[in-house]
Design a protein around this nucleic acid. Structure first.
Length: 591
DNA sequence: GCCGTTTTCGGCCCGACTGTTTTCAGTCG
């Protein structure tokens, strides 16, 4: 019986919601499954624990019925209602709803009339001309579905934030320079610093909307104009990314920015709350329901203020309880980029980086850091010339020389250890004790059974010289799935042993992710945000790590490298071991 | 299916576009 973690349960609830939608069920019934799935996915505790303690209904959107269903998923891997719907409709059928223009009604019609069960089936039916004459399928609709299949295939993979954010920022800058434009900002998932992006949204305000739309089409980065109307223009850029630029009246700018920033779930929660207060929120402003009067919407601050709420940082607009937290005064004071005082994960030319120790220190100085750690690969990672003990001692001597110069950020002697099959790490204890800090990471066995990789990590965390676990789940966005870890056990162990969890800021890792961070915080875990730079310019990745931490509701006090150097040393596990040994030696000498 | 500072029943976010229609359903964000 495979274990069902929160993500797996959420996926099953979403699947149920999709199938109920195709089945023509009541809208609110299938939405309740999606709503519960969203809450489950973000819930910071393992649902198996909640189930044991009978607390499943504490999750918003999970009532008596769904609590039973979730219990059944945990025990049997499914639940009867899901099995029943699956018997009537092919689970692959829901995938055709990913095609623009195909929703539940058309999906069902295609299934019942033509026996279409998948995207491939649909494409075949289309080529054979079998859609012609189907009720509600005119010529235009059929054309749109044909191009929809193509674009769904092309856009199935999402773009890394790293690729989307610079483009969105540059485009907003260019738009702001246009005489017709008053304000312009990226909205959507880019503004929320979501790890991957579907498409880019830019909001502009202007008194001459048509002029803005015309200018957008003429921008140098435009390859093709996909569509342009009075309020929205869609373009394909030279980088192959689709961008929607919207223009609104200056008085509506805040409401539009708020609305298009989302997330959808945040907006729904916001509107529900507004409604209870006799207000209505839309992309045009905030209105009083009783007389329809518009109360405001020129700025985002105004929108939130009218609702009696603070302006939420975009990163936490996820609809996972932030509004309730604000009402109860529980909103965190989020970590900021300027709180970061150093970077504790980075490599040099001694192993597989393009940068030298001096390069890294110079870059750290440029970034205004107080300290930096060199954490090259340890011996057992042979493919990148992991360091032998002699070369470590050479590096330490080099670090001592640079630190003795007394200029620039302090360099800490670190290492990125490899966690072996049995959970042990490189080197002997004496050498390990000589480092200022040790990161330990898994560099293989990513597809091993969950039990095995979990045990490896747990064992490593018991090691008193392992201060930090690097990129804990091993995922690489778009290329490698996270390991099948029991994250609840891992993060609990981190809390128990005082092992710091890394938030790897490398844009295709962002590992831990926001959900795991919230889970870990409940166990009192502390975090280190490291760029894992293999070239000096990659030290610029820190904002991606900070944004991930913010999405995980972290504050300055949760983060190791947001502390002064003395505190960094105190938080490391070795402060106890090495500190105790030193104190012991000291006492011995006194006798 | 969930939920309650009007409610344990009757609601459940808001608006726009498109296409195929004669007043609106389906889809989307």
């Amino acid at each position: 019986m495979p274990e069902f973690d929160n993500a797996a349960i959420a996926a099953m609830l979403d699947g149920m919601g999709d199938l109920l939608e195709v089945a023509g069920e009541d809208r609110f019934r299938y939405l309740s499954y999606h709503k519960a799935a969203h809450a489950v996915r973000a819930w910071p505790e393992d649902l198996s624990t909640l189930a044991e303690e009978g607390r499943l209904t504490e999750i918003p959107g999970v009532g008596k019925k769904l609590a039973v269903s979730i219990g059944q998923i945990l025990e049997t891997g499914s639940f009867p209602e899901y099995d029943a719907v699956k018997a009537s409709f092919e689970p692959t059928l829901v995938r055709i709803m990913d095609i623009p223009g195909v929703g539940p009604k058309r999906a069902r019609l295609l299934y019942e009339q033509l026996g279409v069960k998948s995207v491939d089936d649909l494409e075949t039916a289309l080529q054979q001309g079998r859609l012609v004459g189907l009720a509600g399928f005119g010529e235009k609709t059929i054309d749109n579905i044909a191009s929809g299949i193509e674009s769904a295939r092309r856009h199935s993979e999402r773009i890394l934030l790293q690729d989307a954010l610079p483009l969105a920022t540059r485009l907003a800058d260019e738009l702001r320079r246009l005489p017709s434009v008053e304000r312009a900002e990226p909205a959507g998932s880019v503004r929320r610093w979501q790890e991957t992006i579907g498409d880019i949204d830019i909001i502009t305000s202007s008194k001459q909307p048509q002029a803005v739309m015309d200018e957008v089409c003429k921008l140098p980065m435009v390859v093709r104009v996909l569509g342009s109307g009075g309020t929205k223009t869609s373009i394909m850029t030279t980088a192959g990314l689709q961008v929607d630029v919207r223009v609104v009246d200056p008085a509506e700018y805040g409401a539009a920015l708020q609305y298009f920033t989302g997330s959808k779930e945040h907006n729904v929660a916001l509107r529900e709350r507004a409604k209870r207060a006799g207000l209505k929120v839309s992309e045009y402003g905030v209105f009083r329901v009783s007389d329809g009067e518009r109360l405001g919407g020129e700025t985002e601050d105004e929108v939130y203020r009218l609702l009696g709420l603070p302006t939420f940082p975009p990163e936490i607009r996820l609809g996972i309880g932030e509004i309730e937290a604000a009402d109860e005064g529980r909103l965190p004071k989020l970590l900021r980029l300027q709180d970061i005082r150093g970077d504790l994960h980075g490599h040099t030319t001694s192993t597989d980086s393009k940068a030298t120790l001096e390069d890294n220190r110079a870059k750290a100085a440029e970034l205004g850091y107080d300290y930096i750690a060199v954490t090259d690969h340890a011996f057992n990672l042979r493919m990148v010339k992991g360091l032998e003990p002699e070369r470590i001692r050479e590096q330490w001597a080099a670090v001592d020389r640079l630190n003795a110069e007394g200029e620039g950020p302090v360099i800490l002697k670190g290492i990125e250890l490899n966690i072996a099959e049995d959970g042990s790490v490189d080197y002997d204890e004496e050498l390990l004790a000589g480092f200022d800090l040790c990161i330990a990471s898994l560099h293989g066995g990513f597809r091993d059974p969950g039990e095995k990789v979990t045990q490896r990590l747990l064992r490593a965390m018991e090691n008193p010289y392992v201060d930090i676990i690097g990129h804990p789940t091993g995922r690489i966005l778009g290329r490698r799935n996270p390991m099948d870890l029991d994250m609840d056990a891992v993060l609990r162990k981190a809390g128990e042993t005082g092992t710091i969890m890394e938030i790897n800021a490398y844009p295709d890792r962002l590992d831990l992710n926001d959900t795991h961070i919230r889970m870990a915080k409940r166990y009192g875990v502390r975090f280190s945000i490291g760029t894992d730079a293999h070239a000096t310019e990659q030290m610029n990745y820190m904002p991606y790590g900070v944004a991930t931490a913010r999405r995980g509701w972290l504050e300055r006090r949760d983060v190791l490298n947001a502390q002064p150097l003395e505190t960094v040393r105190k938080w490391l596990k070795r402060a106890k071991v090495v500190g105790r040994a030193t104190a012991g030696e000291h006492r011995a000498r006194e006798r």
